[in-house]
Design a protein around this nucleic acid. Structure first.
Lengths: 119, 119
DNA sequence: CAGGATCCTAGGCGATACTG
DNA sequence: CAGTATCGCCTAGGATCCTG
């Protein structure tokens, strides 16, 4: 398993690359939403409740840079920008789904031992 | 998609939980290795080249806390500690494999546009 | 050999204010 | 509405030293 460079950074494995590309806290949730339809900036901002303006913008930029989504600016006033997933971005969905599904299964597996909150 | 608590923290989705559990920089690489056999601490430390002592220890503790691996201390001198994946830990492997496979596919998809280093 | 404890710094990230 | 810029906190995490 040889090391390799991508975008000026050194990686030891494809997993490490994948986490770099979509492992950020908000990237999978964003791609997941974009799978259904095109979203506007503020829609995402509202729906991902605890994300800060700065973080969301930054992660959207990184996803765009990675070619996983497309940013479209409509030249109207007030500004209107929306984000669409690319074909390349769609290829990440099975992996995201696998994580989502595992997280869900883990939760029910563990809840059998940790009693649920009843108060 | 309701929010839920796990281990004292608030999560918005199963994906977020999954990233919390195994999204750390070294966790998937560790689990991936443990799938093949039991490893000793120093073996992991050597094999994950750029991990620091502190980080590796911390992430192993978190994986243990999450029930994904087992830490076994052999009472000999010098100390001998090894790490084994649990059944619960094995359930994460398909998700890790999905990410690994996507990272690999992404890399070859992108390399068609970005010329490889020839110098 | 495994890992705890301590110190210390870079930079991740939130809050805020400003632009087109 | 969407995005940039700036400031400053605070903590993630590396380096180092010490134990059984």
């Amino acid at each position: 398993m040889p090391e390799f460079m991508h975008d000026g950074q050194l990686f030891q494995s494809p997993v490490e690359l994948a986490l770099h590309l979509i492992g950020g806290k908000w990237k999978m949730p964003v791609l997941w939403r974009l799978n259904q339809r095109t979203w506007r900036y503020n829609e995402l901002h509202r729906d991902l409740k605890r994300v800060s303006h700065k973080m969301l913008t930054q992660q959207l930029r990184e996803l765009e840079h990675a070619g996983l989504l497309t940013r479209t600016v409509h030249p109207v006033v007030p500004p209107h920008v929306d984000y669409t997933i690319t074909e390349l971005g769609r290829t990440a969905l099975p992996a995201i789904e696998a994580l989502r599904s595992w997280g869900s299964a883990y939760r029910s597996a563990v809840s059998r031992f940790e009693p649920r909150n009843t108060d």
